[in-house]
Design a binder for these strands. Sequence first.
DNA 1: GTAGGGTTAG
Length: 696
Amino acid sequence: MFSRCCSKFPCPGGLQTNGERGLGIDASSYLALMKSVGDHGGVQVHAHAVKRGHDRDVYLRNAILSSYAKVGHLEDARRLFDEMPEKRTPADWNSMISGYWKWGLRERARELFNAMPGKNVISWTAMVAGSAKTGDLQGARKYFDEMPRRNVVSWNAMLSGYFQNGFQDEALKLFDEMVSSGFPPDDTTWVTVISSCTARGDASFATRLMERLGLDQEHIDLNYFVKTALLNMYAKCGNITKARWIFDDLGSRRSTVTWNAMISAYCKEGDLASARELFDMMPLLERDVVSWNSMICGYTQNGQSTLAIELFHQMVSVEAGVLMKPDEVTITSVLSACGHLGAMESGKWMVEYVNKHQIKLDLSGYNSMLFMYSRCGSMDEARRVFHKVMEVKDVVSYNTLITGLAAHGLGGEALQLLSEMKTRGIEPNRVTYIGVLTACSHAGLIEEGWRVFGSIREPAVDHYACMVDLLGRVGELKKAELLIREMPMEPHSGVYGSLLNACRIHRRVDLGEVAARKLFELEPHNSGNYVLLSNLYASVGSWGDVDRVRELMRGRGVKKTTALSWVEYNGRIHEFVAGDISHEQTNEIYRLLGDLETRMRRAGYMVDDSCSLRDVGQEEKEESVRVHSERLAICYALLVSEVGSAIRVVKNLRLCSDCHTAIKMISKLEGRKIIVRDNNRFHHFVEGKCSCNNYW
DNA sequence: GTAGGGTTAG
């Protein structure tokens, strides 16, 4: 706006020399103007001011220099800085130094700082803050220790440096030092101290501190920054009532951050309705990317992946009114939602979106992408991202890929990754070993499993559960039993669950009953355990016992879990339950199913469409002969998807063995690759064979 | 009258 004004209406020459009063705009008016237009506007004020000779005013020059530096026009800022060495003030040096820090040019910042004559407390503080923000805490501390004079801002810079980098204990220690050396904390100090306590999950510590220093938390004078930090502290420490009290108390002084903190507080509590209510109440212009991210992440983390994806589409749609650009946090969350759903089409669409809009993903973003691909059954893409795209990897990246490989039964590759991460100096953690042991288990790698188990410094109960699973799956039930007896801690439900599942696979009713009894004690309301036991009875034809288990469930009021299967097609999730007749293409689906079964029988396969492993969740016996959901889902996919493409089905409960056989046949008869995810396991059916071999 | 420190999301 200003540059256009200048080019269209060149200023009369006479006024250019009349620097002090040109057109009645003096230097201080320019300064006021700059304040109102912000840094981006400030850059545009420059040309205008130069024409009137105001660039010789040191304050205005500095303001302009600062604007250039802040928006990243460092060369322009430097030109101004170099122009008139005789008029240079410490403020110019300091603006230049923090500009360099802001844009990550640490060496330039240091050079300038070293060359600066008459460094003042602001210069030193800029060095402390700059180093801390780039993660160089030692450097920051060195400047902090060496600075000849400190003020409260210097202390705050160092404190926040510790906090931002996750060293909350150091921050609190420094705060102690600060108080004992006589520096009274200000609001900013309190914000950092309270936040540090929040990060440590210790609300009472903050409260005690504030009391000790005579700061009443309900004091009316606390500024909204402090109140928001307090709100956040109570929210994170589980006192949602107190958090809400502060939120309501702030009234019109609420900022975007206050709203966001309250929204994420509700999300953390799992109270999505209240979170959404606030989100919808929030003035449209107040909503920033963090508000959207908080709500989307809230959905993802509370198992509402569909809503998360829906909200993302709302966020980027034009109808939302205010254009909102998603960032890497948004993408991380939505990719994760796609992974949880096994929604490959949506996931791919997201990746395309990222490329199209040039959103730069960080490590978490790529980890999320890895997660999405491997949960959608596309290990090739997951490997490609991991090996070819990601430059930096952390323990989460390795864990994600290893867990994915484990789910796909790719044990050897998981083992390879374990040794690779060790050579690269990335320390495996509890999760890594769960993944690797699971991988061994699914691939039947018993020796490797023992070796890995033996290498864990302090095996946790989950690792024992994995070993029981491994031993159990390959049929070593005696050894599994022995391991349980010898483990140094109390076995949890996962341990007995593995044992019971192994008994189901190997039809060991006697031992299975023992495991089930333990499980019913530990978690009497988990319907999965009853289903496992019932399936065990069914596998040996003890229908009376199957009915007994069902009675037991009813007697204890255990809720049945609906077995859902879903297929993603054309950007929509199509959901099926056993015996489903609600889908718009129901008739075609059943016709195809009947046709397939006829062909299977003709090919000499006995396929029992009642799925003799009956689902104890069904109330009525007749209902248990209803066709299982995954068969319906697969038939639907066969109808709509392209010939040659793989069929992906997600099932939220375990695939029964009759369906497993049936799907093998379908893959052969139709010449299609079928990928089924049940819980965390993948079955790749190709030409009548399944990747799980016999270890499923 | 210029320059340094603050809270929220994965």
